[in-house]
């Protein structure tokens, strides 16, 4: 057998590769963009949050929740579930409401002793005396840990401050769930079927194996409407608006009230503030 030297080997390989590439480019028709997309399995419409909307960088959406007024009725939770096509198997839905004994702190992880006093999410009656109610959802943080760790950019921070999902990029690795200090993210653990008459056509229906979470009702707020949870709140404990608008409701509320945010030591700069303006507990 003839020995082939290293140089010769490289030369031959190079030549054959060039030939192969040339041959390929001349012989095979280059597929049009659509055909390319269908090869990648993308012939269907993309499934993502806020598809037909445009983010405006003059907005920074924020929410103020008045825990002094909240009666823990969970209407926000169910309103959200219906609005956003959340199936029963995603449980709890995007909003979770806690019933907490008075004195339980949520600006950091509550100490064990406070937890044992009876913090719960599974209460059946509300409001109860001596308890307060804390609705929690995605905080659309300014420094979102979930976005940083996402390997595919499936979750991203948009120009108007919303943290959104592109479900078709999501590989379901769930590291965002691990990174989120607020446990605001949900995973599609099980198959489900939504009855088609109940589906809100403005919101994409997610599928098995991807992560989802509150979008601040991106399909509504970018059209100038309020998120569903704000709309359904019977005691006006929820306020929504643009943080960058100095005359807006949110900056005014924050100016007039003492506020706190959840788990502030995690350095996430949440866009949901909590105030205690409502006085439902004060008995004259």
């Amino acid at each position: 057998m003839k020995r082939i030297g290293r140089r010769e080997f490289i030369k031959i390989t190079g030549r054959s590769l060039t030939l192969l590439l040339l041959g390929k480019s001349t012989m095979l028709p280059i597929p049009p963009p659509d055909a390319k997309a269908s090869i990648l399995g993308k012939d269907k419409k993309e499934i993502a949050d806020g598809l037909d909307t445009v983010a405006d960088s003059r907005n920074q959406f924020a929410m103020v929740k008045d825990v002094g007024a909240c009666i823990g009725c969970r209407r926000c939770m169910w309103g959200c579930k219906k609005e956003n096509n959340t199936p029963d198997v995603v449980s709890p839905p995007w909003i979770e409401v806690f019933e907490l004994p008075i004195g339980t702190s949520v600006t950091t992880h509550p100490p064990l002793r406070d937890l044992r006093k009876g913090a719960t999410t599974s209460y059946t009656e509300s409001p109860k005396e001596g308890k307060w109610y804390l609705p929690v959802q995605c905080n659309h943080c300014d420094n979102p840990p979930c976005v940083k760790v996402c390997p595919t950019g499936a979750t991203y921070k948009d120009k108007d401050g919303l943290v959104l999902m592109n479900y078709d990029k999501c590989i379901g690795c769930r590291i965002c769930i691990v990174a989120c200090p607020y446990s605001a993210r949900r995973f599609n653990w099980l198959e489900f079927k939504l009855p088609s008459e109940e589906v809100n056509p403005l919101v994409p229906v997610r599928y098995l194996g991807v992560v989802e979470k509150c979008t601040f009702c991106v399909h509504r707020v970018r059209e100038g409407k309020l998120p569903r949870c704000v709309e359904v709140c019977p005691v006006r404990a929820r306020h929504f608006g643009n943080l960058k608008d100095p005359k807006g409701e949110i900056p005014k509320l924050l100016k007039a009230n003492m506020s706190f945010r959840l788990l502030e030591d995690t350095n996430t700069y949440p866009n949901i503030w909590y105030i205690t303006r409502g006085k439902k507990w004060v008995k004259e």
């Binding site: 390997p151 595919t152 590989i171 690795c173 194996g209």
Partner: peptide, 21 residues
């Protein structure tokens, strides 16, 4: 992984350098 059919492809196409994965 939740969606194994696209895990390698998506990480290669959209891979984001800040992610430990």
């Amino acid at each position: 992984i939740g969606t194994p059919e696209r895990f390698i492809l998506n990480v290669m196409r959209y891979g984001r350098i800040t992610a430990p994965f």
